[in-house]
Design a protein around this nucleic acid. Structure first.
Lengths: 226, 226
DNA sequence: TCAAAAGTGTTAAGTTTACACCCATGA
DNA sequence: TCATGGGTGTAAACTTAACACTTTTGA
């Protein structure tokens, strides 16, 4: 049997869908777009796109993320494949979902607007197209789980942040309040969260120390636990 | 734009590959087959198959598992999609990997032999086709992680088992020795691991109490932690 | 002067780990 | 009778959780 043996089997459209998380004003947000084409044009959906012929599926996800945000080299993880026969009412499409963590301040707002994309609060999502709600839920679950064992939250923050911002971020992702002193104690144990001598005076009168995430120090220590 | 708008985009072969775990003689095993067709016929690989036109991807995985083992209603979870352009040397194929946990005693050995499939020790796997090693590693990682929060190990055991067997199973999956008294203390806290009045005399002279997993009790308590 | 966010330690409760001997039986 | 696997409890180390007040400063 030659390679063409595969030829007897059916082929499918394969798409990627991106769950793009951001953090703003103490809230975890997802970037949603109004679907630009039929069927179900105008409904809220994740940003997606079809995989190209000579493109890795991972690369397709990066391309779609870039098209909508202008960003490169973003933290992305696959959530999984969604392959029910009737999940897309247009035609059979198997979709692979990815989630991305971005610093909202760095995204290109013009691109967002060109794609009718807006940041929506994770707690107040509108009804979503097809199985996109399920994708978001699975992505959020993965994000929460990983947050306990990997320092991924920093991808959602600007390079410099206060401990209060960091705590708010954790609270927003985990959906629960955390004790301030216990939180700071644990962050204090993480050598890769470095205090700078800069002070943020925007969010408080007194001023708060600005911290930064040091990836190199993390790679060495690999010590993490929240 | 009509549904046929999708038509301009390329289509791909989509396959499923199954990482079928079993437990025998104190070892965690994976069911591997010698690939039955070209290219690379005869190489060790996971059991896989192409998704059919009107078949959910999950259903394809169940079908493939059933073809090889004769089993239905088996614990299966998706591991993820593998979509590199050149992952399959035959043609472009996007594959979705699933892992399954089976009771080796229940699998149909004739079917295994018909497919040239054999149980291989997880610690002594031969070189595998394409990216199948990566699939197995990811599946094992998921299995290990889930083992800490869900009572999935029981799917690998017969309905009645001794605590020593259960401990060996956990040790085999986690790849580390566990303390016997601490292990039994923790299992003792799980109301859904029920002691029966049956005694196993096969594995020891003295005889060991046989236990069973009670799914209903678990569903109520949802209490688990190893 | 006061409202608002920053910053800081201690103690009790709970969890995890380490550890060693006797028991019952079949060969 | 002895080799084999079955079965059992306690104490120390560590981790987590609960908790409240003082500081700084801009409005």
């Amino acid at each position: 049997m030659a390679p063409s043996f595969y030829g007897q089997y059916p082929k499918f459209h394969v798409a990627v869908d991106c769950i793009i998380f951001g953090f703003e004003a103490g809230k975890l947000k997802v970037l949603l777009q109004q679907r630009p084409f039929e069927p179900r044009q105008g409904e809220w959906s994740l940003m997606g796109g079809f995989v190209k012929r000579n493109e890795d599926v991972d690369a397709a996800a990066e391309r779609v993320l870039n098209q909508l945000t202008g960003l490169h080299n973003i933290y992305m993880k696959q959530v999984g494949a969604f392959g029910s026969v009737n999940r897309d009412s247009g035609d059979r499409v198997i979709s692979v979902a990815y989630f991305a963590l971005v610093d909202i301040a760095k995204v290109n707002h013009d691109l967002n607007h060109q794609h009718s994309a807006y940041w929506e609060d994770i707690d107040e999502l509108p009804p979503l197209l097809f199985d996109h709600k399920e994708m978001v839920e699975k992505a959020l679950y993965r994000l929460r789980t990983m947050l306990h064992s990997r320092p991924i939250g920093f991808s959602l923050l600007p390079p410099l942040f206060t401990l209060s911002q960091l705590q708010q971020l954790y609270e927003a992702i985990l959906g629960q309040k955390l004790d301030k002193r216990n939180f700071r104690k644990r962050i204090g144990d993480m050598k890769f969260v470095e205090k700078t001598d800069l002070i943020d005076k925007v969010n408080s009168k007194r001023g708060a120390a600005l911290y930064q995430f040091n990836k190199e120090v993390y790679e060495e220590s690999k010590l993490f636990k929240l």
